[in-house]
């Protein structure tokens, strides 16, 4: 009767298989990580170069290059996921199905081994994913920011230069542009009252597009102090938003009403589902 407990269920082949698979998985991930490292270190200076030399106001060449590089990283991520699906997950499910029941001593022992194998592989995969995310944020931050402040100062100076240079097309009287316009605007001639259409230069129009980015650049230190606070201090964020919008309104005073509505919406959204 006591011979019942003597028969041991051994499956050495399974243990060997798990070990080799784990090793191969680790080696595979390491190779991918090494390739990603190399690509990153080589790509960051290239990205910075392309950004600096790009004459496009929207820096589209840099965006294209960044998308290409991120695509490569994504390919690596997909490859890792595929290999995981095929080699680890499938194998694990088949192995589990073939084990004896969990209440037998052999069954629970093998299930424990399988569990350690699975956790080791998945943890390694998580480390890999962390590295991928780190690489992605590295690439995205590589080129730095455009120098919007000096562009804005240039536009202000240019506006001062052309302010009194125009004359009414109908009567020839001198027209002074009252303030900086960013879109086509009607200006009334003070002498003959006709509506002249003033079209601002491309540079002035760009100021309107980049106004928000410039305001964010100017208040970036406030956002950083909010991000650094632990636990996150909501007052800091509201203060940052208020300052950012004030800067934005200073740059483009025509948009004050719309910007205030936007600000109200952001403040409202910030308090919805807010976990203190």
């Amino acid at each position: 009767m006591f011979n019942l407990f003597n028969k041991k269920n051994e499956n050495l082949a399974l243990i060997e298989e798990m070990r080799t698979r784990q090793e191969r998985w680790f080696v595979f991930l390491e190779k991918l990580e090494a390739r990603m490292e190399e690509m990153n270190t080589a790509a960051v200076p290239e990205l910075q170069n392309v950004f600096r030399q790009d004459t496009d106001p929207y820096k589209r060449a840099h965006i294209h290059m960044l998308s290409g590089l991120l695509g490569q990283i994504n390919q690596m991520r997909n490859k890792a996921n595929e290999v995981k699906e095929e080699n680890i997950v499938c194998f694990m499910q088949e192995a589990e199905a073939s084990l004896p029941s969990i209440i037998s001593s052999a069954g629970s022992e093998y299930r424990r081994k399988l569990y350690t194998f699975r956790m080791a592989c998945l943890d390694r995969h998580n480390v890999f994913e962390d590295k991928i995310n780190h690489a992605i944020s590295l690439l995205q931050g590589a080129a730095g920011e455009q120098d919007l402040e000096s562009a804005y100062q240039e536009e202000l100076a240019a506006f001062e230069r052309i302010r009194d240079k125009f004359s009414c097309k109908q009567c020839g009287g001198n027209i002074t542009i009252p303030r900086m316009f960013f879109i086509d605007t009607y200006i009334t001639c003070p002498f003959c009252q006709s509506q002249n259409t003033f079209s601002p230069s491309t540079g002035a129009r760009m100021v309107l597009h980049q106004a928000r980015s410039l305001a964010e650049q100017r208040t970036a230190h406030l956002l950083r102090s909010y991000e650094a606070s632990n636990p996150k201090n909501p007052d800091l964020y509201r203060h940052y938003l208020r300052c950012m919008f004030d800067e934005w309104n200073k740059i483009v005073p025509d948009m004050v009403v719309e910007n205030e509505k936007f600000y109200e919406r952001l403040i409202n959204e910030y308090t919805i589902n807010h976990h203190p």
Binding site: E46, D56, P57, I162, S167, K169, S194, Q195, F198
Partner: peptide, 27 residues
């Protein structure tokens, strides 16, 4: 990387070249 950089620098952006225009007054 070289290939990517070349392609990116010579690629034409959608919408063509952006010409910088001066301010003008018209009626």
């Amino acid at each position: 990387l070289e290939q990517l950089k070349n392609k990116v620098e010579t690629q034409e952006n959608y919408g063509g070249e952006i010409t910088n225009e001066e301010a003008r007054m018209d009626i």
